[in-house]
Design a protein around this nucleic acid. Structure first.
Lengths: 250, 250
DNA sequence: CGGTCCCTTGACAGCCGTCAACTACCGTGG
DNA sequence: CCACGGTAGTTGACGGCTGTCAAGGGACCG
């Protein structure tokens, strides 16, 4: 793969804007320093920690989550390759949630100072990162809508659409299929459902041919049909084709 | 009231950092230009619009919300005096949600250019606005936890705690009471519950003396008790006393 | 081959939604 | 003055979506 585009962050940001060769070089550079690995079910940052680095997920799935005192857990977002664990989080004194790995994860720890340098020197990158932050916020809002208004079937269908499109944005889909390395317990924690009900809901989606799910592979034979079942409107992902046609040097 | 502190945005930001007299003057200035009024149940921005200004709520309550095609509605956040309708939203091509008024609302429309000027010239304000953005995101996350994991009673109690503390931060509480200009239908749309169930839940909270609710006035006789009932942990609001002791000129 | 994790299934219960009707309150207008 | 309509709040009956409990099966692994 072309080293200038293999970085999933670059692929993602180029959905919004065109980056110059120098921009890409900078992004590849930060993605190659301070690379760490962690197994599945580990914590990358824990609630209460004071973050000092910006973490960029290079491969594997992580999630943002929060525990209640009695053990209930809610997954707040899925963090996929190319995703940052919050651009400005070190302004806050301590983490109010944790970030954990769902699979083995490779990630780059970008020092705070490095982020500040880039912010000053590369306005196009900064703007692209702002776009990314806003899209993340939009995804959070859509989850609130799902949890508040959609029933189990719609909610699950909606999540499948979202994950598929997000993965497609970083080149991690294969036709109408993608990897889905989540257990049903993980889905349950994300969707605010019980494991048993997740199981029944998945079976219903399979029975109606809206999805196929074998092992860790999700297949969506008819994306439009799945979107309809979920009342899924992709606007909130803000794939703004617009910016991609700009010249990177403007 | 002292004109230098009457601006609710200043009150809010000073929970995070100390602002200089010049900072406050700038903030007061932007809050006095382009002031608009709107009645209850109006829209300030609508889904699909392209935002060109940054709106600052000066008085009244607004909310961010989203409709599904079949008419269901989810309120995504409450926007209180001193709140901004997203600092960088004009990076996106179009709104993916709407912002509407719940009461008569006074707000200032700050032109995009003005925001960019301030970003360049007043780093302390910029940092404080970043803090505000991060806190807003933390509130969104906590709503996801509430909607996913908390039952109706906990969810309602949690919301009451959050609203009370947010209002207290901008000086809009009176002892253990505050204004709560929401109908039960509004609460229902925010909490993902039916109006009927909101009604029953409020009665239970009243019966157990956790809240008193007369007309538009919410009273919390024992905040600690209400917090316990909700499993409410105020960390996510990030009232970082830390910054407040810094000298504004450092 | 025993253990663990994950998935699956059935029975049952409960939280919460829907439907419907009723009350209270308020401002308007006849 | 009262009639009227509209909004908001309240209550009861009923049903269903979803949770809980419990048990069993398959895959993988030490």
């Amino acid at each position: 793969m072309d080293p200038l585009t293999s970085n999933p962050l670059i692929l993602k940001l180029e959905q919004f804007t065109k980056l110059s060769a120098e921009d890409k070089q900078v992004l590849n550079h930060v993605a190659s320093e301070g690379v760490r690995q962690i197994g599945p079910r580990g914590d990358i940052i824990r609630e209460g920690d004071r973050p000092q680095t910006l973490n960029l997920i290079l491969s594997g799935w992580a999630c943002r989550y929060k525990h209640l005192e009695d053990g209930r857990r809610q997954i707040i977002s899925f963090i996929l390759p190319g995703d940052l664990c919050d651009s400005h989080l070190f302004i806050l004194r301590q983490m109010d949630h944790s970030i954990g790995s769902l699979t083995p994860v490779t990630f780059a720890q970008i020092p705070r100072r490095r982020v500040e340098e880039i912010t000053l020197k590369y306005p196009r990158i900064t703007q692209a990162l702002s776009w990314d932050t806003l899209v993340s916020a939009a995804i959070q809002r859509e989850w609130i809508v799902s949890l508040g208004q959609r029933d189990a079937l719609e909610r699950m269908a909606h999540l499948m659409c979202e994950i598929f499109l997000r993965l497609r944005g970083v080149g991690m889909t294969d036709g109408d299929s993608c990897d889905l390395p989540l257990t049903q317990a993980g889905l349950a924690d994300a969707m605010g459902l019980s494991v048993v009900h997740v199981n029944r809901t998945l079976q219903e989606l399979r029975a109606t041919k809206l999805i196929a799910l074998k092992g860790r592979t999700l297949t969506i034979p008819d994306l439009r049909a799945l979107q309809d079942a979920a009342q899924f409107n992709p606007n909130y992902l803000h794939f703004e084709a617009e910016g991609r046609h700009l010249d990177a040097n403007e």
